[in-house]
Design a protein around this nucleic acid. Structure first.
Lengths: 336, 336
DNA sequence: GGGTTTTACGAAAACGTTTTCCCTTGTTTT
DNA sequence: AAAACAAGGGAAAACGTTTTCGTAAAACCC
């Protein structure tokens, strides 16, 4: 909006446009004295450079995109917080896009991003991602992309994740140690690296302790909270119902709590529960919820830092970073 | 990144750059047949227009900024969700900036925004905002700005808020009706429209029921959770301690719960609690938390819609919209 | 069929920067 | 004192679009 530009500034100063531009960019071609004059006038007239002209010319947008399934989610809110913290500190702008767990939205978002609007992309895949074709296309074009949390299997992708397998393993082990023998795993439909890796940890723990792997104990949930709640109720009412639930995502733990309330099942007496979750109020729930808590803020920070290293070409060759940050298992009343 | 541009496209088609551009924008100057050819070639070569060139020329960025104090907060996460939903549907991009409740950050953010990077700004003020000088500057320049939730007093500002006064009044009334006589109000330091309006509702309710207004019952909290918890503990241990707490923001209710746990005060027996909050797990807390819940998602949607009306000049003259959306008081166990 | 209008397209300017190349001084070197 | 050089600055091209204006050919009008 500020219609004061380099031309205006140069007229005011009796200098050429190029000199003013150089002065503002602190070029060695301009004398210290002139620089000072220019800076002062720019300040006085509240000059704000036009970012589009600059980006067009320099082929740098100083902007990155964050593509996530949803934002009203403690994990992603914290991750964005981490990303923003790093980005703002580095002087970058952050564009956010929500895919609403919808592959079509995700694809069209990525497509639009190819126009050069951003210098790099941070993405956590949506649950019905089929192939990462669009994305590998981007990457092959040498475009910096960092995946976090929900990542593709492709070993060529830079990723920042948590130790999902270990988390699933340890949580399951914990449930077994307090006497559970029929542990159900709540997963999310579609292929998500997180929920699959957590499940593999769960299965490995069952195996280690010689517990049977019952397919009925792996419950595939959807994105519909109400439907999930009904599904969980059904599972909890069946013959040979589980005596424990390991929930792969926070919202399914919440649905579990509601389901138990409805069918009058007491946690932890009748059912023990552990969930992956970043819920800040986990310890205030009734009963307090045992969680495996991914360090979402740190994951966001690391992912952003890695992306900036790539954007600024500080990552050489065809090096691919795969950063893993540990989650912590916090035992509370729901599993004791 | 995609180095295919109009020039390349026009060469491929044997047309001029201008014709191709017009064809892509569906100009009446181009024949239907040619348009078809152009569209097909653009598709084939995966042409993505350069957004900076376009923005530079058209003086439109198709981008809006959202400036909020924090994002790891249920209210703001939901509001952003609403904003994004409207923006993405309208084909706009959303830049997010966090001020971390810091006036300096807020000012510099707004300053940068004056370069024309965005077509409009959605903002919720940080708690130590002194004056809205920067912002009125923006507005005077005819720049579309919509305030939501935490808004300036200035009657010239378009705002989208909830009925904070009523919320404070009704919550207080409810506490009085269940027998509370010493109701403390937890406010946030600094001047925030929300917390002040809620307080005025609280004070009005006290007045209506002829209860004294004790300054010691108005507790000014900070942004430091640990300090707040200590402060609340202190208040709850003093002579003539409150028998109820009305919390103006979610996090202070959580600190209250922790404080009560530590000093062994039972909610609701020893202390009743109601809080403004968008916590999805309010009904699962121990005890379930009574809340006044602002419709954050709708507020976000309304604010974005209003902003787009302003950006697209559908708001004529010097009309100023002040939209208010009602919150709902949900009584649960913490206040019964 | 001369004139007018319409249709379809192209040339070129414009948006505000950045950057390359050049020029003018004044200073140093031999 | 001529040559070489450095310092400080300017002219103009370039980035990729959009849009105004111009114009050739075709279509229409009486």
């Amino acid at each position: 909006m500020s219609s004061i530009n380099l031309k205006r500034l140069s007229e005011e100063l009796g200098l050429s446009i190029s000199s003013v531009s150089k002065a503002l960019r602190d070029s060695y071609e301009i004398s210290a004295e002139t620089k000072k004059r220019v800076l002062e006038m720019a300040e006085k007239l509240n000059y704000q450079p036009n970012p589009f002209a600059s980006s067009l010319r320099r082929k740098k947008s100083l902007t990155v995109a964050v593509v996530i399934p949803e934002i009203a989610n403690n994990y992603f809110a914290l991750a964005i917080n981490g990303i923003q913290t790093v980005a703002q500190q580095k002087g970058y702008h952050v564009l956010t896009y929500l895919t609403h767990e919808n592959a079509k939205d995700q694809e069209s978002t990525i497509k639009h991003l190819q126009g050069g609007r951003v210098d790099g992309v941070l993405i956590s895949l949506c649950s019905d991602t089929s192939t990462g074709s669009q994305l590998t296309e981007l990457q092959n074009a040498g475009f910096p992309v960092v995946f976090f949390d929900r990542v593709p299997d492709d070993p060529g992708c830079p990723t920042v994740t948590t130790d999902d397998f270990d988390g699933g393993f340890k949580a399951t082990e914990q449930l077994i140690k307090v006497g559970c023998r029929k542990i159900a795993y709540l997963r999310v439909a579609g292929y998500l690296s997180t929920t699959v890796n957590r499940m593999n940890g769960y299965l490995a723990a069952l195996k280690k302790y010689n517990l049977p792997q019952d397919p009925k104990m792996i419950v595939e949930c959807s994105n519909d909270d109400a439907a999930n709640q009904e599904l969980i109720k059904k599972v909890l009412k069946m013959r040979g119902r589980p005596d424990a639930i390991l929930s792969s995502v926070e919202k399914l733990a919440i649905s579990t709590y509601y389901a138990c309330n409805e069918i009058n099942l007491k946690i932890p007496k009748d059912l023990k529960v552990i969930s992956f979750s970043c819920l800040r109020t986990a310890s205030l729930l009734s009963p307090s919820l045992s969680t495996i808590t991914p360090p979402a803020f740190e994951i966001g920070k690391e992912a952003a830092s890695l992306l900036f290293r790539m954007v600024e070409k500080k990552v050489y060759g065809n090096r691919v970073d795969k950063i893993v940050i540990k989650s912590s298992l916090i035992e509370r009343n729901s599993s004791s």
